Computed example of a mutant assay.
Amino acid sequence: MNFLKVPKHVGIIMDGNGRWAIKNNRERNYGHKKGVEVAENVIEWSKEFGVDYLTLYTFSQENWKRPKEEIEFLFELIIRYFEENLNRIIENGVKISFLGKIDDLPKSLKDTCKEIQNISKNNKEFNLILALNYGGKQEIVDAVNKIIKEGKEEITIEDMERNLYLPHVPNPDLIIRTGGEVRLSNFLLWESAYSELYFTKTLWPDFSYEEYLNALKDYSKRERRFGAIKQ
């Protein structure tokens, strides 16, 4: 992929599972199951393209408004995926981190997340970050509260950045959103200040290798000046 300017960190808002299922005359949960399969493909494609970090918006704090049965299905789907694929994840050198209020999740899912994170912590081939029970506004508020507890009277950008949930992770270069909506929906609000954005109407279960490649080609055409003037 020498012709591509590959981003170091890609964030993806995986939108459209429920609509895809309804469109195909299936229940919404079937769309979530299909969405996990696509996410697995995207992880492999990201590694192939040379992306180092991939953050997937898996479950937002706003998603608690969904029906209880759908939430429980999603959580069970995540647990089952890790149970079935843990060995392969480790063998492939994938380091998994979680972004969000993990301690507020049901115990079974919380314990699974912490176990996976601990087991994979020394892997170095690829960094997969799952935003789970995550909200960008809440992350900023939590960072400010941590700084206040330090006794600081004035807060700097550096203070904020070292108190984010995963301060060691570089900011996303590219954020992709599927499903046709054109907004960030509380995803990485601080970190996305200079991210390039790519929106597609493709529903997440239909997201393909070609669509991902198109997003990277589009990113390769962008000039990232970060406020400076092109020389």
Rank of each mutant, 00 (worst) to 15 (best):
N171I: 01
G179R: 04
L56E: 14
K34F: 14
E191Y: 03
N85M: 15
K137D: 00
D173N: 12
N122V: 05
R177E: 07
V169W: 00
E48C: 13
E37C: 10
W20F: 10
T156K: 07
F82I: 11
L216S: 05
F226S: 10
L109G: 06
R26E: 13
V182G: 04
K149G: 05
L130R: 00
K230M: 11
E191V: 02
L184Y: 01
F226C: 07
E37F: 05
G18F: 13
A215Q: 11
L128S: 05
N92L: 06
L86V: 13
F126I: 14
K124C: 09
K107Y: 04
K107W: 05
K33F: 13
N145L: 14
K107E: 12
W45C: 14
R225Q: 05
P67R: 03
K124M: 13
I43A: 08
W204M: 13
L184C: 07
N29I: 15
W45I: 13
S120N: 11
A131C: 06
E69M: 12
Q231N: 09
T112Y: 04
E125R: 14
E76V: 12
L188T: 00
N171G: 02
G136W: 00
I176Y: 04
Y53K: 05
S108V: 12
G35A: 06
K101V: 03
R66T: 05
S46Y: 02
K121C: 03
